[in-house]
Amino acid sequence: MSHPRTKTLIIDQHDESIPLIRLRFVEIDGTLYHLAKDVGAAIGLKADDDGDYRQTLEGYRVEYLMSTVSDRGTVLGPLALITDEDYRQLAKVVRQSRTPSTL
């Protein structure tokens, strides 16, 4: 499967010590799918050797699609894509795992 266009959301914290966050996504049959490459980097996950996050996603039991996408004419892929819902759940789990216990 190949998707000819991505949409990009850029988050700027207006603080030079915090880098911009870029999240690219595609819409497939009415569902938003984020590039795992962007999501993983944004929430601090460990990338695979090829820069994607398939092994990490599998470790968190997050289902993903493999697809080729294009960003401003540059073909990217194959890349792992995850739903918006899975992205939010993954970010929540990662945040919780990094919060020190208050026992």
Rank of each mutant, 00 (worst) to 15 (best):
R5M: 12
R5S: 14
K7Y: 11
K7H: 14
T8H: 07
L9G: 03
I10G: 04
I10Y: 06
I11P: 09
D12A: 09
D12T: 00
H14W: 05
H14C: 15
D15W: 02
D15P: 00
E16P: 06
I18M: 15
P19G: 08
P19R: 11
L20H: 09
L20F: 13
R22A: 09
V26C: 05
V26P: 00
E27G: 00
I28N: 02
I28E: 11
T31W: 02
L32I: 09
L32E: 15
Y33A: 00
H34E: 14
H34C: 08
K37S: 03
K37W: 08
D38N: 10
V39W: 05
G40A: 07
A41I: 04
A41M: 03
A42I: 06
I43C: 01
K46P: 02
K46Q: 12
A47K: 11
D48S: 04
D49W: 02
D49V: 03
D49E: 10
Y53T: 01
R54G: 05
Q55R: 09
Q55G: 12
Q55E: 15
L57D: 15
R61C: 05
E63G: 02
L65P: 03
L65H: 04
M66V: 04
S67T: 08
T68W: 14
S70Q: 13
S70G: 09
G73F: 11
T74A: 15
L76N: 12
L76D: 15
L76K: 13
A80W: 01
A80M: 05
A80Y: 03
T83V: 06
T83W: 01
D84E: 15
E85V: 08
E85P: 00
E85K: 10
D86A: 13
Y87V: 01
R88F: 14
Q89V: 13
L90V: 00
K92L: 14
V93Q: 13
V93G: 09
R95S: 14
S97I: 00
S97M: 11
R98G: 08
R98P: 01
R98L: 15
R98T: 08
T99S: 10
T99P: 07
P100Q: 13
P100H: 13
P100G: 03
S101G: 13
T102D: 12
